[in-house]
């Protein structure tokens, strides 16, 4: 039997629900059957969360992924020791929590870059804590791009909702800026990144569909020319390179088309509105275009319910479900 996919779970902000949902995920029998998970966290912090949340777990703390042992029910923890861990208050933002959160994520990314794990799932960060720690952070895609020395203009977010995957050509930009960012080069990059990510996830011949920017994808130029001048030529170029890609289609009808492994949209709201209507909670966000497989959950650190044992791990389970299909040892690709 082939070796299972190894997945590092970066436990996110230690004062939020991250350690709790990481633990619940690592203990989930479906997860354990599908992959070998390892929680990246300060060993003391994850034990504290287990205790206050009433989660019984047998921990196996390691310094290197190579020392992990997935036999029985034990939860492997890649120790990412944090100063002040013992006094860190759950439910409160702090510089210490911000530092710990970033450290876990960085450690998990490094393990993936080194090939020690096949993929990373990240629990939610808390941007306030990170700002208190005086660390620059503007979302996981940019963070992972920097940590993997990848040019950010080729890094994209792919939302995963069940079998539907939605890639955003632009994300956190105003509508005006997003329009300016839509170039043939950008569309070519997002198509290639999507194709590569889908192959990494085990889809042999990915089929991709691209939306328009304008209403009805411009309706033959009646409502805008970007489809004719930018998007369609980029699609044609990708087809010429052997990628299976269709479009541009009106974003409002596109999501009903069958037979595509991923949809590419031009704007944040085109993709996020559809994803969150379909599934307000169970959404995973993959960062694609980077040399590692990386997914985060599309919700916050929920400090208000930290340590109560009531946090729902649905989004993280969804993220793992997506990544568990990744081929172990699949060679890293860099553009």
């Amino acid at each position: 039997m082939a070796e299972k996919t190894k997945i590092a779970i970066a436990s996110g902000d230690p004062a939020g629900i991250g350690p709790e949902i990481s633990l619940k995920t690592a203990l989930d029998p479906v997860v354990r059957a599908a992959c070998n998970p390892i929680v990246v966290c300060d060993a003391g912090i994850v034990a504290r969360h287990a205790k206050v949340c009433g989660i019984e777990a047998e921990f196996h703390t390691v310094k290197h992924v190579g020392d992990a042992d997935w036999s029985g029910q034990r939860v492997n923890v890649l120790d990412c020791a944090v100063a002040d861990a013992a006094t860190l208050a759950l439910g409160a933002t702090s510089a210490a929590a911000g530092r710990a959160s970033i450290a876990c994520c960085r450690t998990a990314v490094k393990a993936a870059l080194a090939g020690d794990v096949d993929a990373v799932v990240a629990a939610p960060q808390n941007e306030t804590s990170i700002a208190l720690a005086d660390i620059k952070f503007d979302g996981h895609p940019s963070f992972v791009a920097r940590e993997t020395a990848t040019n950010e203009s080729g890094v994209f977010m792919m939302l995963c909702v069940g079998r539907m995957k939605i890639v955003h050509a632009t994300l956190h930009s105003s509508v005006r800026e997003a329009i300016a960012m839509i170039t043939r080069e950008k569309i070519a990059r997002v198509i290639k990144a999507t194709d590569a990510a889908l192959r990494r996830l085990g889809i042999e011949k990915p089929k991709i569909c691209v939306s328009g920017l304008n209403p009805h994808a411009g309706e033959d130029g009646l409502f805008g020319s970007e489809e004719i001048e930018i998007i369609k030529p980029a699609i044609d170029a990708a087809i010429a390179e052997g990628i299976s890609v269709a479009g541009p289609l009106g974003a409002d009808i596109m999501f009903h088309k069958k037979g595509f492994d991923a949809f590419i949209v031009m704007l944040h709201d085109q993709g996020h509105v559809a994803a969150k209507v379909l599934s307000p909670n169970a959404t995973a966000a993959m960062t694609i275009g980077v040399p590692i497989l990386f997914a985060s959950v599309a919700h916050g650190s929920a400090h208000d319910i930290a340590g109560k044992g009531i946090a729902n791990p649905a989004a993280m389970l969804e993220a793992i479900r997506q990544l568990a299909k990744a081929k172990p040892g699949f060679p890293l690709t860099r553009e």
């Binding site: 009106g250 974003a251 085109q270 509105v273 559809a274």
Partner: peptide, 15 residues
């Protein structure tokens, strides 16, 4: 504020 922002949710919910 614009076409797709309105049409995407309603087409998703009531195709």
């Amino acid at each position: 504020m614009y076409h797709d922002q309105a049409l995407i949710p309603i087409k998703t919910l009531a195709f």
